[in-house]
Design a binder for these strands. Structure first.
Lengths: 198, 198
DNA sequence: CGCCCTGTAGAACGGTCGTTCTGCCTTGCC
DNA sequence: GGCAAGGCAGAACGACCGTTCTACAGGGCG
């Protein structure tokens, strides 16, 4: 009677596996850690692992899917606040900056993952592309509700700043990176809004 | 009597090894390819490989060092042209855009590498940091020769756009990415130059 | 000539990879 | 009570990992 993918009770062992995978994959990379490591730190046995996941690749996909849902939740919350679009964009940027300055930040989980899966046909690579397309579309919609004709390049610009900030956030001084990022976003929003007053 | 690191004749086998490593590491990642693969594609034997490199890690460092020298060469050429600083910055941005649109582009070799080596103490990670520091310093110097007080945030902004463009360059439409990047750089240069008219 | 360096060729090392397997013990529902 | 499902424990698989080894062939230089 065990449920399908919409099962409400995800089995404690499975959740422990996914949490451990998230922590280790995000913190140390994917190819360089073996399933034994995740299994032992999640305090489960190999048999249990292979009962819940067909293999390592599936665990990686589940890890990215969880990250995707977490970010969508953040953005959806910002949108649900019902503020004007520029303020929503600022809120999204703020949540990105907050993430960069949070403990254990190791860059963008999706950019890191795609660096290890260059093959465009690979499921992991495609999961990254899907996530990024959603994010770009979301920003594009927000930009379009400010001004339509130039919304797309503005959204591209926003995402480019985000990618740069996420990439450099664990390589340089985080505070400086966030200042630069937020300043760039603010300039971008103002320039874009100035095209169509109110 | 074999030369030290300043040897002029780098031994054909060693060069073949390095070229093959560059191609495969850049194209497919580092942890996911074994030395056997590089050895066989470089048409050398294991013994020859281990005669020239203490191990795989050293080959990775040599790969990044070669990439570092290539980029420094590009930037030095742009600087040596003796154009005014804004034009030099434009030339650097153009060469980045050209790289993104070139065949086989797979993102920034250094950002890709650091995604696989998160440990800040690891030699590979530090090689990435060193390269990035040089690049930031170089852009900072160019910005400072336009206007001094705000040069540092402007340089940070430039690098952030570069990182974003390089990261997205192999995930989205390259032409669009380059347009967005060059437009952003142009705006940045103009804004920065406007602080101190000539 | 003799020696060292560079290269080829291939076997072999211990370790780890992802994966599969056989058991046994609990828990909860029919 | 019975029985399937989920979890634990641990052995074992073949494949590949990075690395080391022996053995031999050519070539330049003292």
């Amino acid at each position: 009677m065990a449920g399908s993918e919409t099962d409400i009770r995800p089995s404690e062992a499975r959740q422990r596996l996914l949490d451990t995978a998230t922590r280790i994959f995000y913190g140390e990379g994917i190819h360089s850690v073996g399933v034994d490591r995740i299994i032992s730190e999640a305090k489960v046995t190999r048999a249990t692992f292979y009962r819940h996941f067909p293999g390592k690749e599936n665990l990686v996909l589940a890890y990215l899917q969880a990250a995707d849902q977490a970010i969508r939740g953040q953005v959806d919350t910002a949108i649900a606040a019902g503020l004007p679009a520029p303020d929503t964009l600022r809120a999204v940027a703020e949540s990105i900056a907050q993430g960069i300055q949070s403990a254990g930040f190791r860059g963008c989980a999706f950019l890191n993952a795609v660096a290890e899966y260059p093959d465009p046909d690979h499921p992991v690579h495609q999961a990254v592309l899907t996530h990024r397309q959603w994010f770009l579309d979301t920003i594009n919609t927000l930009m379009a509700s400010i001004e339509k004709t130039e919304a797309e390049p503005a959204a591209q610009h926003f995402v480019m700043l985000r990618d740069g900030a996420m990439a450099a956030g664990c390589l340089f001084d985080r505070v400086l990176i966030c200042e630069t990022f937020l300043r760039g976003v603010e300039g971008l929003i103002r320039t874009h809004a100035a095209r169509q007053p109110a």
